[in-house]
Design a binder for these strands. Sequence first.
RNA 1: GCUCUCGUAGCUCAAAUGGAUAGAGCAACAGACUUCUAAUCUGUAGGUUAUAGGUUCGAGUCCUAUCGAGAGCGCCA
Length: 546
Amino acid sequence: MNNVFNNLTDSLSAEFKNFDLDEVVHFSLSKLTDYDLQINNLVKYNKARYFNELQENIIKKINSSEIFQTVDESNLGFLNLSLNHNFLMKQITNTQNDFKHNKSHKIIFDYGGPNIGKPLHVGHMRTLNIGRSLYNIHSFIGNEVISDIHLGDWGMPIAQIITYLESKNIDIKILDSSQLEIIYPKASEMYKNNLEFRDRAQVINKLLNNNDKNLLQIWESIKKISIASLEENFKILNHNFDYWLGESDVNDLIPGMIEDLIKNNKVVDDEGALISVEDTDPKILITKSDGSYLYITTDLATILYRQNNIGYDKTLYIVDNRQSLHFKQLFSSLKFFNFNDLDHEHIAYGTLNDSKGNPFKTRDGGTKPLRELFNETYIYIEKINNSLDHSTISKLTNSVLTYSDLITNRKTDYKFDLEKFTNVNGKTGIYVQYSQVRARKLLGNSESQNSEVTELILNDTDKQLLSRLFLFGYFLEQSASLNEPHHLANYLYEISNLFNQFYENEKISDINDPQHVSSKLFITNLFLTTSNSVMSCLGITPVDKM
RNA sequence: GCUCUCGUAGCUCAAAUGGAUAGAGCAACAGACUUCUAAUCUGUAGGUUAUAGGUUCGAGUCCUAUCGAGAGCGCCA
């Protein structure tokens, strides 16, 4: 919540303390339509002797704060509150300034995770959208944020590609990214079906681990081509990363790490492989029997790298649901191995499917490149309104791809339905963009009349919108503390919808009283600011016109 | 076989830390445009929260069982 509210809840918690009750007071949205917020902490004490006295003290404190206009008490102990608009209009701006807090945390966002040699495909969309949004949200509330793409640039997949190039006698220098990208599926299939190929790939993998000069050169070329292609895609999709660290960057740390684990009796030999001695079921495999490394080996080394070179309070791994066992093992291992005592959290999300609930595929059954989904969406929007310029359609396309993803709780699987998500009505990226364009235009038209607001003149529609705008902090906090952007995405729809009602309800150009006009413009302005703040938290760029 | 996640309106989803009468959006039906952009707004209808028990002042939310769906389960990442 905004600091205005937080100061009050702190002092209300203190009231409970006076009666020896350990209650952290917090607001919920009111269930009663005439009120904005409610406090439920009192309910469980409604049979206590001191109930009336406690409730009275609480109400007294609330009244002295001026934040609320009315307080409605029920004999059950629910307190319903309606916001004091004329007071809050001077307190709340819904910009970043409202949410700065003292104890900032340094958080690493580990997301994206593309592999070199493979195209960015629809499977990457959710980690990119959720990762970017959480990064922006935490940045907005004043945390120190660092994103790391966690590039898959090492291990068997790379060895497979190189083996393929070798077997077909292809010179890497003449390849571009699109040619490179069709090689991986072929190499992967040969690895599965061709024993000779498989043996050679494993040899190459080992040689790479031993820094074979020739192979490293080929590897570097592959990496260079891939990164250029990724950067091009990210430019279109509006993604940025602070660090482009890959698995290869931590490779050198692994031998020493393993040595220490052996020395400290944290791992033991098991048919040539190393397993953790931690009592878990299943047992945690740290290295393979041929001595080569696994997913968890590099992830552990990455943690060492980050704690030594970057430093952090918390790391969020924005990765698919299906990898929850891996993260359970990773987090448990890093404690068991005494690496550090910092926070690590797996921000899991469900699978993205097509509109029928099936895995996203291209027409010929391959994995669908993200770029292709972007293009299809772009064309669809262009058909609806072909008078828009390229940059605007691109922004709208990204809005659709982002908003449709974030409107759903990240934990569940979701279906991407192009027709539904480009609809102008409903909870779509298009609708929220349209609403803020309307507001922008309105303010542009009325610029000359914009004067200082001293007192708000509000009808019911105005009040509803304004109340919701003042509650931005409530939804921001919910999204930030649960790392769930959908609370803010839904909030953006709510305020957009309320703004459209406000817009249709009373024409500003028909109002003569300058006080009344300023009041309307104040609300419009606050809506626009709020909409922009939420969009920035979600990773959506507002368009100027549409 | 073992472990985890989930089951809410015809469809897609909300309801954070247990709180009052479970909310939205689509689709359906009925309305409002010589417009501050109708790419909008208004209204109607739609529910035994999978089922059966339990915990308590109070359960969609916590516990147990059953049914159903999905995912994962040491040498891929």
